[in-house]
């Protein structure tokens, strides 16, 4: 199958999934007992004001009608306006998506760059000293609550040691942000040769990235170790030893044969990490998509919540398409399907 046909088929398969996602989030926010009207109207509003807001938002219509209107808008690419800020949800999400992707990229990237080699090394000597040590470490990474880790890191590295800047967002208040090209201060700073901005952005990135890397590396270590141990006990590796392949070649063989399951795992992990992202962004006042979604949920901003969940679903689908394609490139047994 050609790549175009694969993409087309995937896109067609995604449509019913997306309708389901839209439907479920749409209904869930409405039966959740949140009342955005009271919040918007304020404590001194009269019943007439209440009714007019309710009417304006269309919340007085029957649910099926609200849903069909919303679905129609979504199909046309209109995610509606935020009820709190009156800004277009799509614009809000677009602006914030890059910010969150940057954090996710560095966090999971470093998590994988550390986690995969560590997991492999642990697998080459199961129950050795290194394995035992990393097992304890990854247990920590698994069990520490993310927001607590973030708070402790701020406390230690900003308050006690003074090594890191305050957790007030993506850039120091004393530095003017660079001209917008991609939306990432770090990349834009480098592209426009605004080195002070790039430096400030980088130093702000360090703590949240480390935090996310710790959280993502722990399961990567565990999975990589399990996958590599299975490959090491396979007929292929035994036969490679019987053929007298030097240790270096055998390790390469193990790495190559572990790559597909490890990549698939990291793909699923990325999509699962968006929830963790919300908490990290919140603690570091990051202002990305995760924080946006969390705020929308807390304040009952229905259109924003719906838009947020829909975009995350699209993101997950994209991640899996990319993973499938990469697997197709490195694994001769696989087919695009």
């Amino acid at each position: 199958m050609t790549f175009q046909r694969f993409l087309l088929r995937r896109a067609l398969m995604v449509i019913p999934l997306m309708i389901g996602v839209v439907f479920i989030t749409f209904m869930l926010v409405r039966i959740g007992g949140l009342d955005p009207v009271g919040r918007l109207a304020g404590p001194t509003a009269t019943q007439a004001e209440f009714d007019s807001i309710r009417n304006n938002l269309g919340l007085d219509q029957p649910l099926w009608k609200q849903f069909s209107i919303y679905l129609g808008n979504v199909v046309r690419g209109d995610l509606g306006e935020s009820w709190l800020s009156n800004r277009s949800v799509l614009t809000d999400i677009k602006e914030r998506a890059v910010i969150s992707l940057e954090l996710l990229f560095w966090g999971v990237g470093i998590g994988a760059l550390v986690g995969v080699p560590v997991g492999l090394r642990a697998a080459f000597r199961p129950n050795g000293r290194f394995d035992q040590f990393t097992r304890v470490l990854s247990l920590f990474g698994f069990s520490i609550p993310t927001y607590w880790l973030a708070l402790v890191m701020i406390f230690v590295f900003f308050y006690l040691l003074g090594w890191s800047p305050p957790a007030i967002g993506r850039m120091s208040l004393l530095v003017t942000p660079p001209d917008m090209i991609t939306g990432s201060y770090l990349i834009d700073g480098v592209l426009t040769a605004r080195w002070d901005a790039a430096r400030s952005a980088a130093s702000q990135l360090i703590l949240p990235v480390i935090c996310l890397a710790i959280v993502s590396a722990a399961p990567i270590i565990k999975q990589t170790r399990a996958i590599a141990i299975e490959v090491l006990s396979s007929d292929t590796v035994r036969y490679a030893h019987a053929c007298g392949l030097p240790e270096r070649n055998v390790r390469k063989l193990v790495l190559r044969n572990s790559a597909v399951p490890i990549l698939t795992y990291i793909g699923t992990e990325v999509t699962g990490l968006v929830g963790t992202m919300s908490l990290i962004e919140y603690v570091f006042a990051w202002g990305g998509l995760g924080q946006y979604g969390l705020n929308a949920i807390i304040s009952g901003d229905f259109t924003a919540v719906q838009g947020y969940v829909l975009v995350l679903a699209v993101f997950s689908v994209l991640v899996f398409i990319v993973i499938d394609f990469v697997v197709y490139l490195i694994e001769p047994r696989s087919e695009l399907s």
Partner: peptide
């Protein structure tokens, strides 16, 4: 390793799973 696969060669019982699949 310089002897295995060189002076002593082995043929094993699961040929399909023993070859490197990649």
């Amino acid at each position: 390793n310089r002897i295995r696969g060189n002076n002593i060669a082995m043929v094993v019982q699961n040929p399909r799973t023993s070859l490197d699949p990649l």
